[in-house]
Amino acid sequence: KEFRPGDKVVLPPYGVGVVAGIAQRSVSGVSRAYYQVDFPGSRSKAYVPVEAPHSVGLRKAL
C-alpha cells in the first residue's frame, strides 16, 4: 500500500489530512477498499480509492 495509517497527506480541495486507515465501502453493490482520510480540527472525512489515489490528487504532505 502506498499510504499507511498516520501518514500526513494533501487532498485537494480539502487540504492537509491524516490517513486513518483502510475501509471497505460498497458503491453500486461493489465492495472496494478506500483510504479514510481525517482532517484535524474538523469532523470531515474523505474516502479515496486505494487502487487509484492519485486520480483524485491524494499525495503525501511535505
Rank of each mutant, 00 (worst) to 15 (best):
G41L: 11
P12E: 08
A23Y: 14
K8Y: 13
G6D: 01
P5V: 15
V30D: 04
R4F: 11
K45C: 15
P53R: 06
Q24V: 13
R4K: 13
G21P: 00
P13Y: 09
V16S: 06
A46Q: 11
H54P: 04
H54W: 12
A61C: 15
Y47I: 03
A61E: 08
L62S: 13
A52K: 10
L11D: 01
V30L: 11
S44V: 15
G6Q: 02
Y34W: 05
V50C: 07
G57P: 04
V10C: 12
V37D: 00
I22W: 03
L11G: 01
A61R: 05
D38N: 12
R43Q: 13
A20W: 08
P49I: 05
H54F: 09
F39E: 01
G57W: 05
V50L: 05
G15Q: 01
A20K: 10
P40T: 07
P12V: 06
A23E: 12
K60G: 15
Y14H: 08
Q24Y: 15
V50Q: 02
K60T: 08
L62I: 11
Q36E: 14
Y34N: 00
R59G: 04
K45Q: 11
P5G: 03
V48C: 07
G17L: 02
S55E: 11
P49C: 09
E51I: 07
S55K: 12
P5E: 10
D7T: 08
R59H: 13
R43T: 13
G41R: 09
A33N: 10
S28R: 13
P5W: 04
S44I: 15
A23C: 15
G21Q: 07
A33S: 12
V50I: 09
L58D: 03
V9E: 00
R25T: 06
L11C: 07
V16W: 11
S44Y: 15
P13G: 15
R32M: 10
A20M: 13
P53F: 09
V10P: 01
V50K: 03
V19K: 00
Y47G: 00
K45T: 14
E51N: 09
A20F: 10
A20L: 10
I22V: 06
S42K: 12
Y35P: 00
A46W: 08
P53S: 13
V48F: 04
S28P: 02
A61P: 06
Y47S: 02
E51T: 08
F3C: 15
R32P: 02
R43W: 10
V50M: 05
E2G: 10
S28A: 13
G29M: 02
F39L: 03
K60Y: 10
F3M: 04
P49N: 05
E51F: 06
P40S: 07
V19I: 15
S42H: 09
V27Y: 09
F39R: 00
S42Y: 11
P40H: 10
D38C: 15
A52P: 04
F3A: 02
E2W: 11
K60P: 14
L62R: 07
R59A: 06
V56M: 11
H54G: 09
I22C: 06
S55F: 08
E51S: 09
V37S: 01
Y47Q: 02
R4L: 10
S31Y: 12
A33C: 12
R25S: 06
R32D: 03
K60N: 10
G17C: 04
S42R: 12
G15C: 12
V9H: 01
P40A: 09
G57N: 04
K45R: 14
V27T: 07
F3L: 06
E2K: 10
R4Q: 11
I22H: 02
A46F: 10
G29H: 04
R59M: 09
Y47A: 01
K8W: 15
P13A: 05
P40K: 08
L58S: 02
R32K: 13
A46C: 14
D7E: 08
P40M: 08
K8P: 05
H54R: 07
P53V: 13
D38W: 15
S55Y: 08
A52M: 07
K60W: 08
V18G: 01
L58C: 05
G15P: 01
V9F: 03
A61G: 04
V19C: 06
V10E: 07
G57S: 04
Y14M: 07
S44G: 13
K1A: 14
Y34G: 00
L11R: 00
S55V: 09
P40R: 07
P12W: 13
L58R: 03
Y14R: 03
G6F: 03
G15L: 02
Q24I: 15
S55D: 10
V10D: 04
V30A: 06
A52Y: 09
S44F: 15
V10I: 13
I22G: 00
V56C: 13
K45P: 15
Y14A: 01
R59S: 06
S55N: 08
L62A: 11
K8G: 03
V30R: 07
Y35T: 00
K1I: 14
S42T: 13
S31H: 08
A46E: 05
E51W: 12
S44D: 11
A46L: 09
R25Y: 12
L58M: 14
A61S: 07
V48I: 09
S42G: 12
S55P: 05
E2N: 10
S28D: 15
V19F: 04
Y47F: 11
G17Q: 01
A20E: 07
A20P: 00
G57Y: 05
Y14G: 01
E2L: 13
V27K: 09
P13E: 05
A52N: 14
G6N: 02
A61K: 07
K1E: 15
V16Q: 11
V37N: 00
D38V: 15
G57T: 04
L62P: 13
G15H: 02
V48H: 15
A61Y: 15
D38F: 14
P12A: 07
Q24M: 14
D7N: 03
G29E: 03
V19D: 00
F3E: 01
H54K: 06
R32V: 10
A61T: 07
R25G: 06
S28H: 14
V37K: 01
P49G: 03
Q36P: 00
S42D: 09
V30E: 09
G21Y: 04
L11H: 03
P13M: 07
D38I: 15
F3R: 01
Q36V: 15
P49Y: 05
V48R: 00
P40V: 10
A46Y: 10
V37M: 01
A52W: 09
H54A: 10
R59Q: 08
Q36Y: 07
A23Q: 11
K8I: 15
K8V: 14
H54Q: 10
R43Y: 11
D38R: 12
G41T: 09
V56G: 08
Y35H: 01
R59Y: 10
V27W: 10
V30T: 07
